[in-house]
Design a protein around this nucleic acid. Sequence first.
DNA 1: GTACGTTCACTTGGCAACAAGATACATTGT
DNA 2: ACAATGTATCTTGTTGCCAAGTGAACGTAC
Lengths: 233, 233
Amino acid sequence: MTEKVVLVDHLISEIKKGAFQSNKKLPSEHVLADQFKVPRMVVRKAYEQLQDLGYIYSKQGKGSYVQDSKIQIPLILSGDVSFTEKMKELHFPFQTITIFCEEVPFDQKIFQSLNVGNDEKVFKIGRLRLIDELPIALHTSFVAQTIFPEIEKDGPNISSMFLYYKQRGFLEFGSNSSTLNVIFPTPNEREILQCSNLVPLLQVESECVDKNSGQVLEHTVIIYRSDYFTYVI
Amino acid sequence: MTEKVVLVDHLISEIKKGAFQSNKKLPSEHVLADQFKVPRMVVRKAYEQLQDLGYIYSKQGKGSYVQDSKIQIPLILSGDVSFTEKMKELHFPFQTITIFCEEVPFDQKIFQSLNVGNDEKVFKIGRLRLIDELPIALHTSFVAQTIFPEIEKDGPNISSMFLYYKQRGFLEFGSNSSTLNVIFPTPNEREILQCSNLVPLLQVESECVDKNSGQVLEHTVIIYRSDYFTYVI
DNA sequence: GTACGTTCACTTGGCAACAAGATACATTGT
DNA sequence: ACAATGTATCTTGTTGCCAAGTGAACGTAC
């Protein structure tokens, strides 16, 4: 066990140092096992963990190779600027696609924060954020039909939630205190964000309120791939 | 590979549900392999990953058992209250011990943020935060000797940095924009925080400034175990 | 009856041999 | 000469067997 961890630590440090950058090929399991005087099984376990972490990939008959290193995006978490505006400022080739708009079953926490009864309809709108075609965040907005009656029909075609709200008379927005959590992705989230199961996600949960009336417009859950972001608060 | 992931997902969900709470013993590798109709090796890999994640532990000859579930601590990240005050408010059996006070070699980023030249002495003071005797965060303060000449001698005995600063004429503190990162622990951090290598850590980096003069008093790096905290910003 | 030792059934841990994919190179047939 | 095919030797992936630790059941000596 401790031998595997030593190997993993060493390899991650080498990868980050760029030691394998020339051809990006890692030493074969047999060679590394001889070098470190450990059974091949230990090297295999280390390589497998590096795969799960997204550092390398292995191909039977060929070898193991380091994954392309990832971009690091500084992300301003606070403030009331929209995600799109934040990204445009940074000149990243940025894109958003709406991937679902569907009614959600009753959920104590969400319904309460939206201040609606359990017989009301609440929709969740999922918008996937991509940079360079790579999915890097999933933005889920929970919206009550009582506030936006046409949300079911409009949902799939909204390009900017903020714009949508503005067009309906809500001019200035704020967000109350956000909660942060570090989570591992569910199978569904893994598929959407195209990451392995050991990539930690930063989950930010907050509410968007209309500054004028104080009304909660949406309950928001955003999950960011933590391997792409540095957060600034 | 995908079989392992399915198993890991399933087991984590069962553990969180408390399905094994009665005796906390997981099914033996052989039994689980039969149930899911997969080779025992797959179960072994899944169990090993759960060990690395800190969910379970295995004992040769006995079996595999779920780890005690962890407390969840709501943590206010913003504001200028000290960590100690935050914890006392929440009535956790809280404790801090200073574990190191040593000079650090030149580091561009740190020295620049402290506004000192590369021939000046800078000390890092490490304070371990414990709740119920469990290490849950490591608070590292980088302090320049030019500002606090006695820091090398005083360092090991400082109970509260804020108090130390106040006693030296700095009355009101603020912090500039903090950066957040999700990282995995280094070997050293694993030993200090007594966690396995797949426990994500939240790293918060900021500066403590004297509101009066605007002078940077310390460069701060705090790492929190993400499995113990929910962060509020 | 009791204390002690043995066996046995079950657990996780480890390993060596084998399977299977990839590639370079030699061999062979035309 | 050239193309197709076999072959040797790399690579990673899989499997099955045995080692080692544990504890309960059992047997036996006293």
